[in-house]
């Protein structure tokens, strides 16, 4: 686990192990060290990278990815996976936009319809995985395909752009000095998630269920309910991510959200969320999200020819994951 990098609170679920404190510390914080190194590297290459404007840009770029990464980390923490998150974000945004433009609802209830749809999808995924014992990898893969198809069907392949000013406000508004508003939503979600995981019975139960579902059941935790709760919250976050993305881009394309899938899975894992469940925290997810965003933005800014961007970005992610695997192997 990446513990207490930003918040100095005492660890909740995690535990002390291992020898060689300095190397252990370095490896535990590898995401953050790697992040700082890349910022310095990109900054040295192009002075524009370290400007305030670009920092604001990085924050905006990180917001949608961050919300999706938070959404994906919850199923991961209970040792499941939800591949339908980005598709759900796209689909629910279309619902939210169409409820305004076609049904004539005011933008706020329309937006809430969208978020509600995503939440319901998460709840439904949770039900399928617990009550019907469906395998989450396949169930959510099927759900992803269904939602992508449904988005294409309801948009009829067109891009939706009829949005209320109220709807697009959050994605466009800025404070004094050009500070964008949108990242505040991510910040709030991040804090809420951190508090939930560390301080609440639900959070502790999520770690326990992900760590050992059989023992958790014997310990009196209602394992199915916890998993359903994780999927439902995750769906809600996906809905908010979808809203933010549509508001920011002022459009819902017929394949909105889908391109985020692999990055949204990679970010929490880079940030220390275990695919085997029970390990990871909100601060780590933030690290993973910022790292991926900095790589994307940085490569664009130092004008790496676009043919190479994907490959170089992939290698950087690979290195981060390899270092993390090394940490897990030697330091637990």
């Amino acid at each position: 686990m990446n513990e207490g990098t930003l918040t100095a609170a005492t660890p909740a679920a995690p535990a002390k192990t291992g020898p060689s404190p300095l190397l252990g510390w370095l490896l535990h914080n590898v995401v953050w060290i790697w992040l700082v190194a890349l910022v310095i590297f990109f900054g040295a290459f192009n002075e524009y990278f370290l400007t305030l404007f670009n920092l604001q840009n990085v924050l905006v770029q990180a917001t949608v990815l961050g919300m999706l990464a938070l959404a994906i980390s919850l199923p991961l923490l209970v040792a499941e996976i939800d591949l339908s998150i980005p598709a759900s974000a796209g689909f629910s945004a279309a619902i939210g936009v169409l409820a305004y433009s076609s049904l004539g609802l005011p933008w706020l209830p329309a937006m809430l319809c969208g978020v509600g749809a995503a939440t319901a999808i998460g709840f439904f995924n949770g039900l399928c995985i617990t009550r019907l014992r469906m395998v989450s990898l396949i169930e959510t893969l099927a759900m992803m395909i269904i939602l992508q198809g449904a988005l294409l069907a309801i948009t009829q392949g067109k891009t939706l752009t009829t949005m209320a000013d109220g709807y697009t406000w959050i994605g466009q508004a800025a404070f004094f000095g050009g500070w964008p508003v949108m990242p505040l939503v991510f910040l709030a979600a991040l804090i809420a998630m951190g508090v939930m995981l560390r301080r609440t019975v639900l959070g502790r139960s999520i770690y326990a269920v992900g760590g050992n579902p059989v023992a958790s059941n014997s310990a009196g935790i209602r394992v199915d309910r916890i998993k359903i709760a994780a999927f439902t919250i995750s769906g809600f976050l996906a809905g908010v991510a979808g809203y933010l993305l549509a508001s920011w881009q002022m459009a819902v394309t017929s394949n909105q959200g889908s391109s985020y899938l692999l990055y949204a899975i990679a970010a929490p894992i880079i940030g220390g969320v275990s695919v085997f469940g029970g390990r990871g925290n909100a601060v780590g997810v933030l690290g993973g999200v910022l790292l991926l965003t900095v790589i994307q933005v940085g490569l664009a800014i130092i004008s790496v020819p676009s043919f190479y961007v994907g490959m170089i970005g992939g290698v950087m992610i690979f290195i981060a994951v390899a270092i993390d695997a090394f940490r897990v192997r030697y330091f637990g």
């Binding site: 679920a13 995690p14 019975v201 502790r204 326990a208 023992a215 958790s216």
Partner: peptide
């Protein structure tokens, strides 16, 4: 091993696990 405790959690978190409510 299978049913007793959540191995990767701390001793403390395990002790309080059944009585958190």
């Amino acid at each position: 091993r299978r049913e007793g405790s959540v191995g990767q959690m701390s001793i403390g978190a395990n002790i309080s696990l059944s009585s958190l409510g």
